[in-house]
């Protein structure tokens, strides 16, 4: 008797792969799926359940289902992928300096002079004097300083 193709194994593996690639390519664009990667965790969970189901079928009914060896490999690769994802998203991205000496609420912001994108020197004092220079229709007399990691 020809053994059946083990659908659950492949579906589970594909979901895990989708969970791995979809964060950077898609979910990172929306704050609600970026701040906490619940959509990806859901994909991982569903994928893991299907992989588990497939593996149980392969090992309990090897006469009926294929995939004992391949299924084990897919499961191991999936587990490594999920581990890598978790390490990156729950550990690496949180390795930020404490910035204990950063200016605090109520303090005066330290002044500075830096070049803008056209090479023109700009001071904080100038920006404060004309907050609307930075952006049209400023909502209030204030300057929002945004420190970026950079553009790459």
């Amino acid at each position: 008797m020809k053994r059946r193709w083990n659908f659950s194994l492949w579906a589970g593996f594909l979901l895990v792969v989708l969970g791995l690639v979809s964060y950077v390519t898609f979910f990172v664009r929306f704050p609600i799926t970026r701040d906490f990667p619940w959509a990806n965790l859901l994909l991982f969970f569903t994928g893991a359940v299907l992989l588990g189901k497939g593996l149980i079928q392969s090992f309990r009914q090897p006469e009926l289902y294929r995939g004992k060896i391949l299924g084990s490999i897919l499961a191991a690769v999936s587990l490594a992928g999920i581990g890598f994802f978790s390490y990156g998203l729950f550990y690496l991205v949180r390795q930020l300096p404490s910035s204990a000496a950063a200016p605090r609420l109520g303090q005066k912001a330290p002044d500075f002079t830096l070049s803008d994108q056209n090479g023109k020197p700009v001071t904080l004092a100038e920006l404060l004097a004309s907050p609307s220079a930075g952006t049209a229709g400023a909502r209030a007399n204030g300057v929002l300083l945004i420190f970026y990691r950079g553009y790459w």
Binding site: D35, L89, R94, L96, L105, K108, L128, G142, L144, I146
Partner: peptide
């Protein structure tokens, strides 16, 4: 590089709001 951070400074130069995230992915 700089860590992600936002400071709102009022017209007197006083810092009125700070956002120091503890994760690169949270802004």
């Amino acid at each position: 590089i700089a860590r992600p951070a936002e400071f709102l400074i009022d017209s007197t130069g006083t810092i009125r709001w700070i956002n120091l995230t503890d994760s690169v992915t949270v802004r």
